[in-house]
Design a protein around this nucleic acid. Structure first.
Lengths: 135, 135
DNA sequence: CTTATAAATGTTATATTATTACATAGTGTT
DNA sequence: AACACTATGTAATAATATAACATTTATAAG
């Protein structure tokens, strides 16, 4: 039997799976070279292997890049359908990052038009403050 | 006469002024090393001098960092009072970046609370799409 | 005006993040 | 089998950013 065509289409390659698993298990965003260090025992030895997998995973919406931190977290928002509409909260003390899933927020931003009436196909929003623990 | 105390408080140091002028004149976001290259004739020779000035200018709200591009633009939003609430549109083809000043948007985001009722002290939002010219 | 303090500068070296380029191997389709 | 496409392996290097330390300049207080 093996993997059906549809399943295969949605499945990850070997390196992608290794790197996704690591990020998905992590309670905090991981940086590319932290990832590299952690997967070297699994045969991934060089930066391009990591960055290529990260690029694909981002494209697929399986992970997101936290731009202000150059770090990556797994998507936990409605089965990763929202690679084009991302929002995060970031604690400026402990650096805890949480993906925000607010229907209201995403509706507001997805339909936002600027002064010229221009709509956008994608957005990324990062909120900063202190998390519960750090206040 | 020279510069009064109040004026002085709001004035920039030599390196800050040189670097701000360059960014302010630029129609597009500038990267740190592009800045470095362009100010070497004015005596700024090393990366730390650039990054230090950039850090201060960002703190003051005179410029903003476009996180997804690692580049800096001058603030053109209500006299630079909004370093803590920034929104930009970015064209994915020509890379044109525009600061969005929408009272509605900033009001919505400034007062946004997450599921736990948490409010944030700062946010940065980047919209992506195609600008008028590129469509 | 001088002394203390803080802010800014100059400089060298190095750390961190990311990409180019090219060769090879696997996968799915016809 | 032949083709196109995706993924991988590898070395080198480019691009972005900071650490550490010495020195100078600006500001405020006595």
């Amino acid at each position: 039997m093996g993997i059906s065509k549809i399943d295969k289409m949605h499945s990850l390659s070997k390196n992608q799976q290794i790197i996704f698993d690591l990020i998905d298990k992590s309670p905090e965003p991981l940086k590319a070279y932290t990832i590299l260090f952690n997967v070297q025992k699994r045969g991934i030895k060089a930066p391009p292997q990591v960055y290529r997998a990260l690029d694909k995973l981002v494209e697929m919406g399986k992970i997101h890049k936290i731009e202000s931190r150059n770090a990556f977290i797994a998507c936990h928002n409605s089965s990763c359908q929202v690679a084009k509409a991302t929002a995060f909260s970031i604690c400026e003390i402990c650096e805890k990052v949480t993906e925000i899933s607010s229907a209201g927020l995403s509706k507001y931003l997805t339909s936002f038009k600027d002064k010229d009436g221009m709509k956008y196909s994608k957005y990324n929003l990062e909120f900063f403050g202190l998390c519960k623990k750090c206040r």
